[in-house]
Design a protein around this nucleic acid. Sequence first.
DNA 1: TCTGGGGTCCTAGGACCC
DNA 2: TCTGGGGTCCTAGGACCC
Length: 396
Amino acid sequence: MRRILLADADAFFVAVARAVDPDGAGRAPLLIVGGSRDSRGVVCCASYETRQFGVRSAMPISRALRLCPDAVCVPVPFKACGRKSAEIRTVLLQFAPIVEGASIDEWYLDLTGTEGLYHHEALATTAQRIRAAVLEASRITLSIGGGTNKLIAKMAAARAKPDGVVIVDPGGEESFLRSCTLAEIPLVGPKFQERLATHGLVMIEDVLRYDVATLQRWMSKREAAWLWNRVHGIEDSVVAHREVARGLSREETFGKDLHEDRDLERELLRLVTRAAADLRAAGLSTRTVAVRLRDWDFRTHSARRTLAEPVVSDRVILGVARELLAALRKARRVPARLVGVRLSGLAPAQSATQFGLFPTAETERDRGLAGAIDRVRGKYGPKSIVPGTLQRMDSP
DNA sequence: TCTGGGGTCCTAGGACCC
DNA sequence: TCTGGGGTCCTAGGACCC
């Protein structure tokens, strides 16, 4: 029998924003983290006090402020959040050999086989000790859910919020699930909910009345099997350390829509520079470059190209990205609100000699130059070599 | 009400190969 | 001359999560 916990930080971004700015955000009960008052942003995280007004994550800031006009808005303290997240993870590793970071503020812990180690105390007791240790070390409150698999642990954690523990004992899965809506199942989002409701399916109980064959009449085979397993609490994925990331993207929504190709290219250059530097800092190479363009009317298009060989340099990535952007603009040239770049097909960067075995668009000089720029930035700061330099480099 | 930034995974169609 | 099934890779788009 597995013993899985999901530890989830309560209002994580709000807690970190208060910690880094005790006199500002720290003193504002009505706090919204996500951007300035007149930005085009959305709410990343709202304090529990502002949630009383109906403010929710992903809501446009403008709407949140209409609901709660006295709220204080602060930008997301990304760096501090990353540091705090790593700090919490270190504490959690004292309790479980494997800690899987599911996002910046949640972690799965596999405590299977630790019963003796914990003197056969109840899982809820262990969870409370974990919460106390994290609060002591990081001043962050966690909610923890537990059960025999990751699905149950995750759904239990949602019930535990805020500042609590909910453990579903082995054998108790069915009665727990019967009390839940389908919307509470992770990955059952608004679209799927809508389709399910068409067939009168709202609660998990509603689905339990049917077998897989019946469900298949209403959805694809794959979906039916997936849903049947979920409502029966069946989920066997393991708690595991994360593999290499699948992709890396950088994007930006402009303060005002951009009309000119030239302005979009300038933004693209900045994003590619950031993405490529982060790629190399992670010791990775990319084979697929994608550009995303969101127009003024929110219509979003993307274009991508997979290269014959992995690359790491600004010059090659930028060259591909520019062509992709040009193709997207050629298809539809209207004011744009966002441009983004995404690198995927990531793999550990090979040594220069291994690169040299194959003909590729990227030369030794490209990689040497990229590395030199990284070293200068590492020594003198990220602003010491700005994209303008690269633009000249790009067209010798 | 006017929609962020960072991700993951899935689908469907086409190209190509055996 | 017309034709199969399966596998892999690629592209564009979309759902979903925090």
